[in-house]
Computed example of a mutant assay.
Amino acid sequence: MTTALQPPLPSHPLLRLRLAPRSGMPRPIDGAWWPRSYDLLAELPQLLAGLPLAWGHISSVTVNGATWSATPGRMLVFNQVVRLRRALAASAPHTVVLLAPGRGRWDLLVVPPDTTGEAAEPLMAAAADDGNVSDRY
């Protein structure tokens, strides 16, 4: 009899994030994030931990107030204060905006948590595509 060892399960679920390649041209969407819930307090630390170091410290996060659960005005993430803002703009209901002073602004498409893997994959791929994505959403 042969016993196969299974790899240990990760202690934290893998971050579902796809970022567009860096380029000199501004983009309407800089990538896609597929959180596991609409609980920003639970999801945000993992997102911020997975961002490129070149983005710097994200000091402000804006989400759609009608989509995400209620949040405080700020939270402590990795010993740094992050301001949380809720917008009610109908023009971008499925995005999250990340701001880093002196570094930039990044807009990520938010794939709804209950989306199937089959449906989420093309959305994430399109958001991270190197081509023009402005008319895809």
Rank of each mutant, 00 (worst) to 15 (best):
T115D: 01
L9V: 12
P10C: 02
G24V: 08
L41F: 03
G65W: 12
P45N: 14
P13R: 15
M1I: 02
V77S: 09
L84T: 10
T2D: 06
T71Y: 04
W106G: 03
I58K: 10
L123Y: 01
I29S: 05
L47S: 08
A42M: 13
S37C: 09
W55L: 06
M1T: 07
L108M: 06
G104T: 14
A120V: 07
D130R: 13
V61H: 12
S69N: 05
A89P: 00
R16Q: 03
T67I: 15
S11P: 00
P13G: 09
A127M: 02
T115Q: 01
M25C: 05
Y38D: 06
T116D: 07
E43Y: 06
L88D: 07
R105S: 13
G65D: 11
V110C: 04
A4S: 12
L88E: 10
G104K: 11
R16F: 00
G24R: 15
T62F: 10
M75W: 12
V111I: 07
A92S: 15
R85W: 09
D130F: 07
A119C: 01
D129A: 01
I29P: 01
H94P: 00
V63P: 02
L84S: 12
A87F: 05
L40F: 08
A54P: 00
W106L: 12
R105P: 05
N64K: 05
V82T: 14
G24Q: 09
V82K: 10
L5Q: 14
Y38S: 05
D107G: 03
N79G: 05
G104C: 13
L19I: 11
G31N: 04
L98K: 12
A100P: 06
P113K: 06
R85C: 08
G104H: 11
P113D: 06
V111R: 02
R85L: 10
V77G: 08
D39T: 04
A66N: 12
R18L: 08
A127L: 03
R83S: 09
N64H: 15
W68L: 04
G73Y: 05
L17W: 09
A89W: 08
G117D: 00
R136I: 03
Q6R: 09
G117W: 01
A70D: 10
I58W: 12
P52M: 14
R36A: 01
V81I: 14
G31E: 04
H94K: 03
V63E: 03
S134F: 05
A92C: 06
L109D: 01
G117Q: 02
W34I: 00
D129M: 01
T62C: 12
L40S: 03
L99S: 10
M1W: 00
P101S: 14
P52E: 13
P28N: 13
A89Q: 10
G73Q: 10
R36M: 04
V97K: 13
M124H: 00
T116N: 03
D30Q: 11
S37T: 15
R105V: 15
I58S: 12
L41R: 10
A90E: 14
A42I: 06
S23Q: 06
R22S: 12
A32W: 03
V82I: 14
L44T: 12
